[in-house]
Amino acid sequence: MSVTLTGKTALVTGANRGIGKAIVEALFERGVSKVYLAVRDAESTTELHSTYADKVETLTVDVTDASSVQALAKQATDTDIVVNNAGIMKLQSPLSGEAEAALRSEFEVNVFGLLHVAQAFEPVLVKNKGALVQLNSVASMKTFGDMTTYCASKAAAYSITQGLREKLSEQGVAVVSIHPGPIATDMGKGAGFDDAPGPDVVAKGVVDALEAGDFHNFPDDMAKQLGDEYNSYANNVILGDFSV
């Protein structure tokens, strides 16, 4: 289900830096007219306001708090495209004494945050025949030992994204699942990925997937390798018609 970006209004969670900021820039390059910057700290979007002036509006939100996300949706009823980019990563082995705490915190943001955003914005996106974009990861499909809890949270988020695609598409809403590999953001650099591609490659994947009507997008070279291997399974199973 392809989405025309020109003249649309978008909302991006975690829009103040890294991939979120790059997505905001890419949306404007493709013709979006307004972007809501949904962030925890309203002071963190100064640079984007300096660049885009009244084309952006900052709204505060805590995606782990369902009532906060519901309030956000009530403030942004003209939203056509929601990009759920907010996420956290802990570097924990499954054998670490900190693994349980890491898993809980990652699920709060990466999984329950997605549920909160999808549920709150369902009426808005259905009314506007819009689109929901979820930032997942290659880590949703492949577990790396010292990132196990993060991978588990992203696998859960990807599973929910598949369910959202089924249910929202019935109501005319497009859903996109983005699966980058390591990216040189603050979070990525903290995991040792200093030489990874920049966030602009992910942002391009987001706008390309929306315009093409793709469910999956593997934006960078590492992700494309996984995507090439995954393609047959994705087309025949994930996107296949399996009646339960």
Rank of each mutant, 00 (worst) to 15 (best):
V202S: 02
K189R: 15
M222S: 12
K224A: 09
V176E: 05
D208N: 13
Y150F: 15
G188D: 09
G198S: 13
G190I: 05
M187Y: 08
T161R: 07
D214C: 00
F193Y: 15
Y158E: 13
T185E: 03
I178V: 15
G190M: 08
G192T: 10
K204N: 09
H179N: 15
G205R: 01
H179C: 08
P219Y: 00
P197N: 07
A212V: 02
L164D: 12
A155F: 09
A209S: 14
K204M: 02
V175Y: 09
L210F: 04
E229M: 13
K224C: 01
M222A: 14
D228C: 00
E229I: 10
D195F: 03
Y158I: 00
G205M: 04
F193W: 14
E211I: 07
P197M: 12
E170F: 03
D200C: 02
V206Y: 03
S177K: 06
G190N: 14
K189C: 05
G163C: 12
I160K: 00
H179V: 01
P219G: 00
G188L: 05
T149P: 04
A157E: 01
S177W: 03
C151M: 09
V175F: 07
T185M: 07
A196H: 09
V173D: 11
D214R: 14
M222Q: 14
R165M: 11
Q162K: 14
D220F: 09
G181Y: 04
I160M: 15
E211L: 05
P180L: 09
R165G: 04
G192F: 06
G227N: 04
E211G: 04
A184F: 10
